[in-house]
Design a protein around this nucleic acid. Sequence first.
DNA 1: TCCTTTATTGACCAAATGGTCAGGAACACG
DNA 2: CGTGTTCCTGACCATTTGGTCAATAAAGGA
Lengths: 205, 205
Amino acid sequence: MTDQPDAPLTRIQQKNRDLILEGALTAFSTNGFRGATVDQIAEAAGLSKPNVLYYFASKDDIHKTLLTTLLDMWLAPMIRIDPQGDPLAEVLGYVRAKLELSRRFPRESRLFAYEILQGAPHLTEILGGSLRQIVDTAAAILGAWMDQGRLARVDPHHLIFSIWALTQHYADFDVQVRAVLGPGHDPFVEAEPFIESLYRKMLAV
Amino acid sequence: MTDQPDAPLTRIQQKNRDLILEGALTAFSTNGFRGATVDQIAEAAGLSKPNVLYYFASKDDIHKTLLTTLLDMWLAPMIRIDPQGDPLAEVLGYVRAKLELSRRFPRESRLFAYEILQGAPHLTEILGGSLRQIVDTAAAILGAWMDQGRLARVDPHHLIFSIWALTQHYADFDVQVRAVLGPGHDPFVEAEPFIESLYRKMLAV
DNA sequence: TCCTTTATTGACCAAATGGTCAGGAACACG
DNA sequence: CGTGTTCCTGACCATTTGGTCAATAAAGGA
C-alpha cells in the first residue's frame, strides 16, 4: 500500500484499518487465531478479503497489531498504582479497574486468554520483559506497604495473579458463569462486592 | 469398525482408542480444536490418519469424547464436599483438590478453557444442566454452613467461581505466571499457601 | 488350518483457506 | 481537467486438511 514505512495514514487508511482491527477482534476472540478466517474478518469489517490484505500484510500481521495495541490498555491500571496513595484504596482501585476492563472489553480479555493458552507465541519477549518489570514494580510497592504494616503480609506476586484470575474469569468464562447462575443475574454486578470484600478481609492488618 | 453399537472393546481397540485420546488431549490443549489437526493427533498417537478415523468417526467425535470423559474427573472434587464435615476443612480440601488437578492435569484444564472461551459449543446442555445442579448443591451446603454461623457470609456461587478462577489460572496461564515470576519458582508450590490463607481469612467467622 | 472378522494403509478427493496479481475505479491535487 | 497515486476487486493459485475407500495385512476362533 505505501512504500514509505512511516508515512502518515490517510483518512481512508485510518478508517479501514480501524474497521479491520475491530472485525478481527471479534473474530479472533470468538474462535482463536487459527479458528478465525480472513474471510470472517473481511465480512465483519465490511470489506473484501483482498482489500483486508491490502491494509495488512497477513492474518498474522493483523493479530500481532491487535495484541500489541491492546496490551497497553490492559496494563494501564497496574501502572497507575500510586505508592503515595492509601494502600487498601489503591489495591481496591486496581481491582475495580481490572474488573471494569473485563466487563467492558471481554473480547480483548479473551484474545489475551487465547494467546496465553497457546503459549504466547507473539508475546514471549513482552511477558518476560516489560510485563515482568511492571509487575515487579507493583509487587515492590505492595511489599513496601506490607513492610510498613499497612497491608497484611501476603506474597505480592500471587496477590497480583489472584486479581488477574478473579477479574478475567468473568470475561473469559462468561458462558460458564452465566449458565451456572441461570438467567436474572448480572455476574459482573455481583462479582464486584464479592471480590472487594475478599480483598478487604485478606489485606486487613 | 463395529456394527454393534455397544459391543465390548477388543484389546486392540482399547489400546488404540486410548492412544488416540492421549495424543488428541495434547494436540487440542496446545492449539485448540481448530488449531489441532488429525495428522497431529495421529502422529502423537503413533498411528496413521486413516487409522485414527477408523476408531473415531471424526475429529469432532474425538473432541467430544475427550470432553465428556474428562468432565467427570473435573467435577469429582466438588461432589465430594461433605455436608457433615467441618466447613472450613471441606472448603480447603476442595481448594487443594482443585489446585492439585490443575497441577497434575494442565492439559485437561486448558482443554476446558478453550471450550468455554469458544462459547462451549459442545457443553451448553451440560453447563446449564448437570453442572449447574452440582454447583447449586454445593452452594446450598455452603449457604447452610453460613446460616449456622460456621462460615463467614459470602455469595456461595461466587465463592465457587473464585476457587475455579484461582486454581485454574495456574494451569491455563502457566506461561504468563512463569514468565513474570522468572526462573527458580514453582508457581503451584507457592500458590497453595497463598490461596489457603486467602480462604482462611475470607471465611473466618 | 481355514475362514471370518478386525486392523491398517496408500492413494485420493473436495472444500476451505491464506495469499497473489493484473487491472480497473476512485481520489487528490496541480 | 488531467494525471499520478491510492484504493479496490474478481479471478486465481498452492497448500492444508477432514474425510473416504478399495485393497491388504493381521487376528481370532472353530
